Measured scan of single mutants.
Amino acid sequence: IRCIGVSNRDFVEGMSGGTWVDVVLEHGGCVTVMAQDKPTVDIELVTTTVSNMAEVRSYCYEASISDMASDSRCPTQGEAYLDKQSDTQYVCKRTLVDRGWGNGCGLFGKGSLVTCAKFTCSKKMTGKSIQPENLEYRIMLSVHGSQHSGMIVNDTGYETDENRAKVEVTPNSPRAEATLGGFGSLGLDCEPRTGLDFSDLYYLTMNNKHWLVHKEWFHDIPLPWHAGADTGTPHWNNKEALVEFKDAHAKRQTVVVLGSQEGAVHTALAGALEAEMDGAKGKLFSGHLKCRLKMDKLRLKGVSYSLCTAAFTFTKVPAETLHGTVTVEVQYAGTDGPCKIPVQMAVDMQTLTPVGRLITANPVITESTENSKMMLELDPPFGDSYIVIGVGDKKITHHWHRSGSTIGKAFEATVRGAKRMAVLGDTAWDFGSVGGVFNSLGKGIHQIFGAAFKSLFGGMSWFSQILIGTLLVWLGLNTKNGSISLTCLALGGVMIFLSTAVSA
């Protein structure tokens, strides 16, 4: 259960009878995928790494000078000259100064003066180019299975845990398959586009800190620079940016070097996208990844198990997540596992009318040892309800109150669905055939309105939902006002479609 501690969480529900669903994975976010007769899966884009970055340009932001020398000439005696002028490691300046009897010249006039100092770069920052084909995306998957609280967001041991898996995709191999043991396998067909235009970005490294910066900004930095990788004795261009020549006297000129420019660069980098280094690879934390999940090989585990009949206890007080759902960790005293956990939410304890829904599909106890633990997640209705676990006299209950409203949740879900469709863009549509167009249209309606429909009408039977949709269509056909007619027709059509397409 990876997503319960992530604030940016998206719930995606598969269409009834569908074998695939489109998701948008982004750094700092987590996606929970639910479908009829399929286990619930949490998917998170953990890291995006980039390798084989080529150094484009380096800037010196802290330097020192040494070996200063000057040469001067009297008027009419030609130009002052130093051998160091031809050495690229030196920074030199030529000027004219007033000369006369007082400073060793027989004539009054302008004399030539040249001053040089050896330039040494102490600290530099480097910009590297990123090729999209060198990106690698690491995705962690977790099935809502027989897990306890100690396994949440624990990325170790996934090789031997059938509840978890790690997959890596690249532009050259965008397809992967996550093996989930008894739950089958989940196929991923990803489109490795981060949403960032790397043709316009460089990877900047300064003092063990890293950013993504725009090329134009990078090339306009007014500091000494050299092109390409460091060859040991780089040729620094624009050395004068960190060196200041003071007022010249008759035979000498003082040279000083400016202080470190790291603070000024940090100020200019305010708002830039931060990154990290992992050995020789860069780690990015921006952008998104679009994936199509193929769920035809994914299956529920323990459908044929019998119900657990022994007593359950709450190991922890049920807690609310950031998303309005409830996490419950229970301990089973029996030894008759594997068995299914009898769990439901009810409005009252007399009729036990089921409300809400299970995020953890078909929760089971897989071990036959005593005191096995299991964590599950529920989506309670707004208002008061009861969490009921167990059967008969051994069942345990917990009162729950959820604040908020169904309308607010439906609106929030619609906005999130619209954002998801905007990110998917043209990849969500198939114009290759008439059937493809209608299929894409259905998927689009489901992406945007599916979660809201589930919130508003999830407790009704599909037949009642179709009746309401048919009534809206009838009202649309018999209303003389054009805008009201079109609105009723659209709402009725969407409702009829979703009542037959969205899983219960």
Rank of each mutant, 00 (worst) to 15 (best):
F438I: 15
V257C: 14
K38L: 04
I152S: 15
K118F: 03
S51N: 09
S64V: 05
C339R: 07
Y386E: 02
F457N: 09
W217D: 10
L475C: 10
G302I: 09
L293R: 03
F285T: 03
I365F: 02
D10H: 06
K84A: 12
D83M: 05
S304Y: 15
T115H: 09
N238I: 07
T327Y: 03
G442Y: 05
L472I: 15
S185A: 13
G102E: 10
W101V: 03
D71E: 15
G106W: 06
M206Q: 05
D189Y: 05
L475M: 14
V31C: 04
M495Y: 07
K316I: 01
R57V: 03
P224K: 10
I448F: 03
G302M: 11
D42E: 09
T156I: 14
V56N: 07
S440R: 04
T406Q: 12
E262N: 09
T369N: 15
M460P: 12
S433L: 11
V364F: 15
R2L: 03
G492D: 11
V328L: 07
T254D: 03
S146R: 00
Y386Q: 05
I359K: 13
K281L: 00
V391N: 10
V46W: 10
G109M: 10
P171S: 13
R252Y: 08
S306C: 01
K246H: 14
N478S: 11
P224C: 08
S455K: 13
V257W: 11
H323L: 05
F497T: 07
S51C: 09
V347I: 13
F431N: 10
I448R: 04
Q447C: 15
F198M: 09
G450D: 07
P234D: 09
T353C: 00
P338M: 11
T335Q: 13
N362F: 06
L273E: 04
C74V: 07
K124I: 14
Q350D: 03
N154W: 08
K38C: 09
A264S: 12
E274P: 08
R292Q: 07
T327D: 04
Y332N: 12
M295F: 15
H249E: 08
T427I: 08
L204C: 09
D384P: 05
T76M: 08
A451F: 00
C291T: 02
C488S: 12
L498E: 11
A63M: 12
A248R: 05
N103R: 02
R164N: 08
K128N: 00
N208K: 12
F431V: 14
H148E: 15
G232D: 10
T414I: 11
V41F: 15
G104I: 04
P338T: 03
K239S: 01
K84N: 13
K209G: 04
V23R: 01
A250D: 03
I484V: 15
L491G: 12
G78T: 02
S372P: 13
H226G: 00
H249K: 09
K297T: 02
V213W: 08
V255M: 07
R402D: 08
G337R: 10
G476H: 09
D336A: 13
S483G: 07
R402S: 01
W217P: 03
G145K: 08
S372Q: 03
F431D: 07
S129N: 14
K373V: 14
S185F: 15
T160Q: 00
T170I: 05
L289K: 03
S403D: 12
V23T: 12
W217C: 13
L456K: 09
E262M: 13
K110Y: 06
G458V: 00
S173F: 05
L186R: 01
G263E: 12
S405K: 06
D430V: 03
T48F: 08
F285V: 12
S86H: 04
T470I: 01
D426S: 11
S72T: 11
F411C: 09
L258A: 13
G408E: 09
G259T: 06
W217T: 04
E262V: 12
V12C: 07
D379V: 08
T160S: 14
L141V: 06
T500S: 15
L96K: 07
F312Y: 10
G104V: 11
G392M: 08
E240V: 14
Q465C: 04
A270H: 13
A229C: 01
M375D: 01
Q36V: 02
P338Q: 03
A418Y: 08
E55R: 02
A54D: 01
R138Y: 05
T427C: 09
S503D: 11
T120R: 14
W462C: 11
A413H: 13
W236V: 01
M375C: 03
I1S: 00
E162M: 10
N362E: 03
T231C: 00
E136F: 02
T427P: 01
I152W: 11
A422H: 01
A361K: 07
T170K: 10
V303W: 01
V364L: 06
I152Y: 15
L289C: 04
E159P: 04
R357V: 02
T470Y: 11
G425S: 02
K110L: 01
I484W: 08
D189F: 06
E274G: 05
L289D: 04
G337F: 13
S66Q: 01
S58D: 13
D197A: 04
H323Q: 13
F108G: 03
L204A: 12
W20I: 03
D336E: 12
L352C: 00
G444V: 14
S304I: 00
G435N: 15
V33D: 05
H323A: 04
N238V: 06
L441P: 13
F453T: 13
L113Y: 02
Q89I: 03
D247F: 09
C92T: 03
A178H: 04
L424I: 07
L196A: 09
E13M: 09
G444S: 13
A319R: 02
V303K: 00
M34R: 05
G476N: 10
S304V: 12
I466L: 06
P381R: 02
T369H: 00
G408C: 08
Q331R: 09
D161R: 12
G17I: 03
P132T: 05
D67A: 14
G187V: 14
T95P: 00
L273A: 05
F457M: 13
A250W: 10
V265D: 12
I365S: 03
L322H: 04
G127Y: 05
D189T: 05
S304Q: 03
A490Q: 10
